[in-house]
């Protein structure tokens, strides 16, 4: 946060006219999107609507085509490499958890601090005082984050040995280690039971309030989306079809149509399997 001061008055994340074309298929078509500072916003839509593709443009995995632009805290990050965008303050989790399985939870978190640490080859080899201090601080910060997400006691477990829910928490801790301005959560409640999903709503609020980040969610569990989001954007077939508060979106006829007339009905919209390439 201190390294990436947000320009006052700028939205945390602004995407303008984002298009992605795979061959002849327009996966995302001129979608514009804003994440206000310290807000919680959601991106929803039926399978194949282009949500994850859109995510991948924001994080730099896909190039924005046709003159689309992404700005992070007022700074243009269009076309930068993924690691650069990440270090400027855009952190993400993955739809199908992608932890570094053979590293401990603490190491996983420290990997994400890479861009905030400075130790070079020489300093590491001679274990210079500044390098040791840096490592100690990184270690402390990692433990702090692990405690924050509630898995402090598993700090030295290998990531692959953590339970499914703990792996999801670890992904969030790892993303937070980037000290992001914006945290992108790609289907964070996938595989959670209703109780855990409910707890997750509180957790997202706590992340936003205590870590001072904006949160952008892709989510299929409508009960979560409706409860947690301050604003919701709906994509369908690569187009933005609606935007607004939960109530506005819920009653929007185009949204209802996109979801086959069952916008707020959990049963029809929570099941999502293997959609969208790239995640």
């Amino acid at each position: 946060m201190s390294e990436n001061p947000t320009t006052v008055g700028q939205p945390a994340l602004q995407a303008d006219d984002i298009s992605v074309i795979f061959g002849g298929l327009v996966a995302v078509n001129k979608v514009s999107f804003t994440v206000p500072e310290q807000s919680i916003v959601s991106l929803i839509g039926p399978n194949g609507a282009g949500k994850t593709t859109f995510f991948n443009v924001l994080t730099g995995l896909y190039p924005a085509e046709r003159g689309g632009q992404v700005a992070l805290g007022g700074r243009d990050v269009t076309g930068l490499a993924p690691h650069k965008i990440a270090s400027l303050g855009l952190a993400r989790t993955f739809q199908n958890i992608r932890l570094f399985n053979l590293m401990t939870a603490e190491e996983n978190v420290k990997v994400a601090m890479h861009s905030h640490l400075k130790a070079g080859v020489f300093g590491t080899v001679i274990r210079a005082p500044w390098q040791r201090r840096e490592e100690r601080e990184a270690h402390d910060f990692a433990l702090e984050l692990l405690k924050f997400v509630g898995i402090g006691k598993s700090a030295y477990e290998y990531a692959r040995n953590l339970s499914y829910g703990d792996q999801r928490r670890l992904e969030v801790a790892r993303a937070l280690a980037l000290k992001p301005k914006v945290l992108l959560l790609d289907e964070p409640t996938a595989g959670m039971n209703p109780r855990e999903s409910a707890e997750f709503v509180d957790f997202v609020h706590r992340v936003r309030d205590e870590r001072k980040v904006s949160v952008l969610l892709i989510e299929h569990d409508m009960s979560v989306v409706m409860r947690v989001s301050e604003r919701i954007t709906v994509l369908d077939r690569g187009e933005k079809i609606a935007e607004g508060t939960a109530d506005e979106v819920r009653t929007n006829p185009r949204v209802v149509e996109a979801y086959l007339g069952s916008a707020a009905n959990d049963n029809h919209v929570t099941i999502d399997d293997g959609e969208e390439a790239g995640s």
Binding site: L61, H83, F100, N101, E107, V111, T124
Partner: peptide, 22 residues
């Protein structure tokens, strides 16, 4: 720091780059 980055790359390149590892 570098050793961790190497391990992370060995484990999952895409995730490593998304976590700011060049």
């Amino acid at each position: 720091r570098l050793g961790r980055a190497w391990l992370a790359i060995r484990e999952d390149e895409l995730a490593a780059s998304a976590m700011g590892v060049p």
